[in-house]
Nucleic acid binder design. Structure first.
Lengths: 192, 192
DNA sequence: CCCATTGTTGAACCACAGGTCAAGAACAGG
DNA sequence: CCTGTTCTTGACCTGTGGTTCAACAATGGG
């Protein structure tokens, strides 16, 4: 009962996320966010609380979706190297897709709010740790299948892939030429 | 003639840089900056103009110093791999040095002001391109000296090292464990 | 020692950020 | 259709951000 919402909260969070990605947390004013969502400021506050709470909702949702897509690609059948390559290519494609180059909210938040925002930082570093673990597991699978040399240090490999992934996301914010991106991906895969 | 400055402009820029690194451009208020420099707001404006001009001064100086240190390490004698490793280690050490983990101003700016600030973006991507070129040149030197296999694609290698470098700088903002950092560096070097 | 020049500063300014609220609007149930 | 509930909205409020300025402090030169 009560008056129904005129907007889809999910859609609203998605729109707000785009703003946070593009301009960062500090530069995303309530007016900007409300306009992007297509709703009055008051409604935003009524629905989500403070700006920081809205941001955390965006960040959590983003992290969850990112991780889900990630895992889905890693869980597919086929050689381990191909699966990992597809994850990198998906990230690169996401960056290229939007001409505004909003980049990755996790990475952007890691650099913008590394200090000053313990709550966001927790989500960010947890998310990064999860990614690393997921990579580490698929590498182990590759080792069992004989696709990855078992004497290699899988932890180190996962770290390296993780780091490359983050670097790619930063490069993706600029209009980095596609050749460099491809080269980095191939280099990382070959290094496994 | 005229009243002499009570502060060293160089030192002021350095102090301001620390603030910008830690909190980002948007969250660095004039009050915060003036306090960090230890001078009244008015003096800052008198000496540097707008906040954005001060920021650009910081960014340019930071990029120049970073690049100089970089080149200096790459120009030292010894095996190419060792020189490159030292560059990475220097970056990691810089991140570890300050417990506040301010990270790299270039990388932070790349993610925070990728859109909305064309002037800063120019400096950022130019700086990144220069780094890549420097790496590319030392790799070529290594190829001539027989330390790097000549049939390798040096451009691709430079891209990969560059990307790893950026990833490291992001990881450096968190309290990433030192083992991971070391593993990433070794992995990158081995991949040459 | 007076003056031109350059620095320093806190007060003052306007705009906007972040957030609240009172008024009204759209429902469901009785 | 009246009522309780939930939404919506723009006006409104307070604080601060970014910036300017008038008044005063150090200098060196003539």
């Amino acid at each position: 009962m009560g008056r129904p919402k005129t907007f889809d909260p999910d859609e609203a969070i998605r729109a707000a996320t785009r703003v946070f990605q593009a301009y960062g947390y500090a530069a995303s004013s309530p007016t900007l966010l409300a306009d992007a969502v297509g709703v009055g400021k008051g409604s935003l506050y009524h629905a989500f609380g403070t700006k920081h709470e809205l941001f955390m909702a965006c960040l959590n949702r983003y992290a969850a979706e990112e991780y889900a897509e990630f895992q889905q690609l890693l869980d597919q059948p086929g050689p381990v190297r191909d699966r990992i390559r597809r994850v990198f290519e998906a990230a690169a494609a996401a960056d290229q897709a939007d001409p505004a180059r909003p980049g990755c909210l996790i990475v952007n938040t890691a650099t913008e709010r590394g200090l000053s925002d313990a709550e966001a930082s927790t989500v960010v570093w947890d998310s990064i740790a999860r990614t690393r673990t997921a990579l580490r597991e698929v590498l182990a699978e590759g080792a069992r299948a004989g696709e990855v040399e078992t004497e290699q240090d899988l932890d180190a490999l996962a770290d390296m892939l993780q780091c490359t992934m983050i670097g790619l996301r930063v490069l993706g914010r600029g209009s980095a030429n596609q050749d460099s991106i491809r080269a980095v991906i191939e280099s990382a895969i070959e290094n496994i």
